[in-house]
Amino acid sequence: MTTPSYPCPYCAAPFGSHEALKAHVVAGHGAEPLPKPHGLIALTVNGERHEHTVEPNTTLYTLIHDRMGLTGAKMFCDRGACGSCTVIMDGRPVLSCMTLAIECDGKTVETIEGVAAAKHPLIETYVKHHCMQCGYCTPGFVVTAKALLDKNPDPTEEEIREALAGNLCRCGTYPQHPRAVTEAAGLLQGGRHEKG
């Protein structure tokens, strides 16, 4: 995704963000700050800042999946009942299909691609324990599990099952997930209680 260019209406100098342009207009031209265009949002996705102009009906899922090409978030139920589109927003696991992109201005979002790029141990423990069959719901599980471990580095099996109970898997991989999450928790804690 290329950063949109923001040309100055006074001198045509290009800026990489609306905020930079605003600062320039105030400082360089002594003009009133520009109003923020409707639908312009700035958010941090996987550690990178992005600006997008979105329609009110654009969901966060559509933004990341269709426009940013972060296709790991999947749409299974489209009504908030399956967890496949989960991303982490400001530390909370949220359903991107039930989140309006226009309400994500200033938010920090982490997707499965970010979790994988950070080499989170969950990825390999998920592979090892065969937590996927068709794999369609898997990224949603991993992201939800990651949010859990961020909050609770040493969850019990019951806590893991509770946390993942909003993620549906039609292939029926459920029994494997607590094993993978427990092992990843152990790895994150330096293998102190690796349970394999």
Binding site: G80, G83, R92, P93, A165, G166
Partner: peptide
Amino acid sequence: TASTHLREM
């Protein structure tokens, strides 16, 4: 109520 995600939202 509902599930983790829905309670977080």
